[in-house]
């Protein structure tokens, strides 16, 4: 018969050992807290506290210079549906989110598949990645002149056709959002491609080779092997791009600064104008809360989907 160590030790010794164990654990916890305390402080002071303050503000009557101490209830939220600009900004944001989600992914995936295993792969990767290292304001300033009334596109088309060509890319409600989204895609496609290339590199070669031996076509291999195994990376890229789509501001600020309807080009821009230009601080806070809630809801849903996909792969 084998006796366990605990059976041979007296209860006092065991109690003492457990006490020492707890002491060590508590010491370790204290040290751990000491290390993470600066981060906790920074996140609380500069992220969580402003978010909480913003939510509180959205229930006040703070407008221009007064009303911070007056409770408004849900009046600011009710106002979102009383003025037409919110719904315009919301629908433009929806276009942005879909565009930012689908287009960089489609082009990035196409480029990743195209550039895989070809000569000068690194050179091409660097070239496509280059726009990402530029500041969005610099990108916006460059593309402003591409789209300007006498800019690159209009002049090029006029030069080629010999006919006057004058499309107000950044001055027309129909074209301004697609034009800026195209610039966003130009800047984002490189990083999307690099992330997808990393995902592709992580896919094991064996099932692909086996499928080839069994006579599977390229499309079948992509559809049934590459795509399912790439899906976790695709979802990470999607989460990043969706968040960028929801909160887009800098490109619109620079490129569409001269467009009179600029304030409704996205919820982030609308929030800025309501708060900082109109002085409707409380109402702007309500817009920010709605925007934040949408970003959290959509990214959380995508994160849940991502974890399920990863579980299925395992």
């Amino acid at each position: 018969m084998i006796k366990t160590a605990s059976a041979t030790l007296s209860p006092e010794i065991l109690k003492d050992a457990r006490r020492r164990e707890r002491r060590v654990a508590w010491r370790q916890t204290r040290i751990a807290w000491l290390f993470i305390a600066p981060a906790v402080f920074m996140v609380s002071a500069f992220l969580l506290a402003p978010v909480v303050f913003n939510v509180i503000l959205s229930f006040t009557k703070w407008q221009k210079f007064t009303g911070l101490d007056k409770f408004a209830g849900f009046a600011n939220y009710a106002r979102l549906f009383a003025v037409p600009y919110f719904s315009e900004a919301l629908s433009n944001t929806a276009v942005w989110v879909v565009g930012a989600m689908v287009l960089p992914l489609a082009f990035g995936l196409g480029l990743a598949l195209l550039l895989r295993n070809i000569p000068l792969q690194e050179t091409f990767k660097s070239l496509f990645f280059l726009p990402k290292v530029m500041a969005p304001t610099a990108v916006g300033a460059i593309w402003y002149y591409v789209y300007a009334p006498h800019g690159v596109i209009n002049s090029a088309v006029a030069g080629i056709t010999g006919q006057p060509f004058d499309v107000g890319w950044l001055y027309d409600a129909q074209t301004v959002t697609p034009s800026v989204i195209a610039t966003f895609v130009w800047q984002t496609v490189g990083i999307t491609m690099v992330l997808l290339l990393l995902g592709l590199a992580a896919i094991p070669r064996d099932p692909i080779e086996a499928a080839r031996v069994d006579g599977a076509s390229g499309w079948q291999i992509f559809r049934h092997i590459i795509w399912p195994l790439l899906l976790p990376t695709v979802l990470v890229v999607t989460i990043l791009n969706v968040a960028a789509g929801f909160t887009t501001f800098d490109l619109l600020w620079v490129m569409a600064g001269s467009y009179p309807g600029k304030r409704t080009l996205s919820l982030a821009v609308y929030m800025y104008y309501e708060s900082f230009s109109n002085g409707a601080w409380a109402y702007g806070s309500a817009v920010a809360v709605v925007l934040g809630a949408m970003v959290i809801a959509v990214t959380a849903a995508l994160a849940v989907l991502q974890s399920r996909v990863e579980k299925n792969i395992r």
Binding site: Q63, K64, V83, Y85, G168, Y171, D172, A173, Y259, P260, G261, K262, R263, T264, Y273, S277, N278, G279, A280
Partner: peptide
């Protein structure tokens, strides 16, 4: 009122462009 001045001007500007 300055709180609505910018929003109103934006609507006028939209008309000038179209």
């Amino acid at each position: 009122p300055s709180q609505i001045q910018g929003d109103l001007v934006a609507a006028m500007g939209s008309f000038m462009l179209d």
